[in-house]
């Protein structure tokens, strides 16, 4: 019985995700895998991702993970997307003009260049570092302070077409959506596995989450 599958589609390093999940679920059977059957058999699925959107989508399709993900989601199993694992759930990414999975309505856009902060310093892209997250009352935020800081590293951000999907925003310098959810699907732009206590709390909430 696989308790938690961490989906491996060859896009970067999943060891950090695995370590952090193990930390909050020490007794659980956690498997890092790209095998569709194993993912489909898991009780919960974590879907991380790094790298560029075209490469991610190519690998997801080549490994038939698009169908597996759709199956997991339709069965009502808890599903957590991280970073690229948020972006590819949307319809289309500006990065490489890439059609994505289309589970959430809306595009993925690049941060504008030439932005400055209040002190007149250039705002760099990628947006890299610890930013404050303004969140709603979804069960995954339980016990996490309002405006807690999480670790981000990304150049693109999602723009949900449906405001009902939005579970959190952050500012750079304008507000952008950094968490989206519907039913058993929850996805974040930041890296909970690298966000110290707040990140571990969110992962723990995911492990304990029983969506209806």
């Amino acid at each position: 019985m696989v308790d938690i599958a961490v989906v491996d589609y060859g896009m970067g390093n999943l060891r950090s995700v695995q370590q952090a999940v193990r930390k909050v679920a020490p007794g659980a059977n956690i498997i890092v895998t790209g095998e569709p059957d194993v993912i489909a058999s898991a009780a919960r699925v974590v879907f991380p991702g790094q790298g560029a959107a075209p490469d991610c989508m190519r690998e997801i399709r080549a490994r038939h993970l698009d169908r597996v993900i759709a199956g997991v989601v339709s069965e009502g199993k808890p599903f957590l997307g991280i970073c690229m694992g948020l972006q590819v759930l949307f319809e289309h990414s500006e990065e490489g003009d890439t059609p994505c999975l289309g589970m959430f309505q809306g595009p993925v856009k690049r941060f504008a260049s030439g932005l400055h902060d209040a002190q007149g310093n250039k705002l760099k892209v990628p947006h890299m570092g610890w930013n404050q997250v303004h969140h709603g009352d979804h069960p995954l935020w339980r016990g996490i302070d309002q405006d807690a800081r999480f670790y981000f590293v990304h150049s693109y951000h999602v723009q949900p077409g449906d405001a009902g999907l939005v579970q959190a925003t952050s500012d750079y310098p304008q507000p952008f959506v950094c968490a989206a959810a519907r039913d058993n699907l929850f996805a974040v732009q930041f890296h909970p596995e690298k966000s110290a206590a707040a990140g571990l709390k969110l992962l723990q909430n995911f492990i304990n989450w029983n969506p209806l």
Binding site: D117, G129, W130, N131, Q132, R149, P173
Partner: peptide
């Protein structure tokens, strides 16, 4: 806003 990082 984004925090400036301190890295030992």
């Amino acid at each position: 806003m984004l925090a400036k990082r301190i890295i030992p």
